[in-house]
Design a protein around this nucleic acid. Structure first.
Lengths: 136, 136
DNA sequence: GACAACTGTTACCTAAGGTAACTATAAGTT
DNA sequence: AACTTATAGTTACCTTAGGTAACAGTTGTC
């Protein structure tokens, strides 16, 4: 499938720009959103959990979490293991999650305008398969 | 299509990392490849042509072109309009284009392993439609 | 000829992430 | 118990990639 990477990558910048604009209301970016999303959907987590999920190094997540603490969106509580810090959403974090979730879902809906439901589903399912092929 | 952005974006880092590794042999990255690809496929071009194509600002392309000049992959010739500089591939640039093209095409083939031809095509065609929806 | 528009550059800034080295704690080994 | 290895998180420093504003030089228009 020659040209596939071009097709894939030319969407990236417009999309990430749009998402970052969308979340700038809350001083968030998509990279910060990933952390919020993770602890909302997988429960309070450690920094290592999160860095494994997104294939990024620990210092990257340390930084993201610190920014989210400054914004009072997450807080850290000690785990049983005294090395660990469990990261969880604050009440404000929960609120912001809901608001961003709505905005993102709305955009997810809008960008699919005029595209066959079947094609949407296939694209949605095919991308993770490609990811698996790259990572293995 | 809730969750689509997650599906899309989680492929990005593995892919771009792989591509950059692939091209590191020639001290290239995907962002530099985009310039090479453009002038190979659209002919010798100005900086403005290229920046329009990829939705990035002019200084970004100035930088990319300067790096490519250092690598002796492109050269600039004056256009009729004395403001313009026409950027074109050198002989070395042509060679490197061919080699990278082969490597990229091979990877494009490999990442599709086990994925239905029909699904590949639909994904390939759907992504640009989404891009159009975002940009309009 | 004056003013606007366009091409490309420079200087400065931000976002995002990586690597290496480190501290503190926990787990495994002898 | 003592020693060694592994793990969680942090810090300092570096790289990549891109944006904005301001500018010089050139061209087009009124």
């Amino acid at each position: 499938m020659e040209g596939f990477f071009r097709s894939y990558l030319s969407l990236y910048r417009p999309l990430i720009t749009k998402l970052n604009e969308l979340m700038s209301t809350y001083q968030l970016s998509y990279s910060l959103w990933q952390v919020i999303f993770y602890i909302k959907n997988y429960g309070p987590s450690t920094l290592v959990d999160i860095s494994n999920q997104y294939n990024v190094e620990k210092p990257t997540i340390t930084r993201r979490v610190h920014r989210l603490e400054d914004l009072q969106i997450v807080k850290q509580i000690p785990g049983k293991d005294r090395r660990e810090k469990i990261i969880q959403l604050t009440d404000l974090g929960e609120e912001i999650y809901q608001k961003c979730r709505e905005k993102i879902t709305e955009l997810e809906h809008n960008v699919m305008e005029g595209i066959d439901k079947e094609e949407q589903t296939i694209t949605f399912q095919t991308l993770p398969k490609i990811k698996e092929n790259i990572l293995k």
